[in-house]
Design a protein around this nucleic acid. Structure first.
Lengths: 96, 96
DNA sequence: TAAGTATATAAGCATATGATTATATGATAC
DNA sequence: GTATCATATAATCATATGCTTATATACTTA
């Protein structure tokens, strides 16, 4: 968490898209395979895979391979730490 | 805060851009005019105005006119509430 | 090894985004 | 009134994004 500004920008790009936020919402309720997400979101498999790639590059999700399936889950620890940093930043006001 | 998902998506779009997050960072330290932000960010005035418009549409900032100047400040109350909702959502896991 | 299943990646394309320049609006001073 | 200052908006354009289709990769099973 060295470059907080950059991290938060990436975080914003991650959740700043309806499809990706729906993926996060689904994964918060438990890890899921790509195929399960395809059914839940009613989106094409490549579209879901691409969003997952984006979310992974933001560190918002992590993947766990299991045979020919890949499970994705929310990187809760990282996300919560980032959100706490954000709350902290937003709370410190009126410095000048 | 009826449509939390939509609110969060807008929030993400708001902070998911380096220039806009820098504006937020500046405004967290106290309200500023457009001209002050132009100097701080070293960006053109129209660019700053357009980002402020975006941030306003996300409810992340509010404006206060004062003569021919317009002050902007972070909508701290709204932002913190949204972040707290996000933290709450991210914390409830393993439902299935 | 070949076939099947799950996922990832590439290529192409339409739309969204963010910058620039030019212009419009709105308030104040003269 | 006109001039000036601060800000907003419009028009334009290059780049980014997100989808689609097609194809590649990886693992499993026969």
């Amino acid at each position: 968490m060295s470059d907080l500004c950059g991290e938060i920008e990436k975080f914003g790009k991650g959740i700043g898209n309806a499809a990706r936020y729906r993926i996060i919402e689904a994964l918060v309720r438990g890890r899921k395979t790509v195929g399960e997400l395809v059914k839940i979101l009613k989106m094409s498999q490549p579209a879901v895979s691409q969003h997952l790639k984006t979310l992974k590059s933001c560190n918002l999700v992590v993947d766990e391979k299991s045979g020919k399936e890949v499970f994705y889950r929310v990187n809760t620890e990282y996300t919560l730490k980032l959100l706490e940093s954000l709350v902290r930043d937003m709370s410190k006001r009126k410095k000048s």
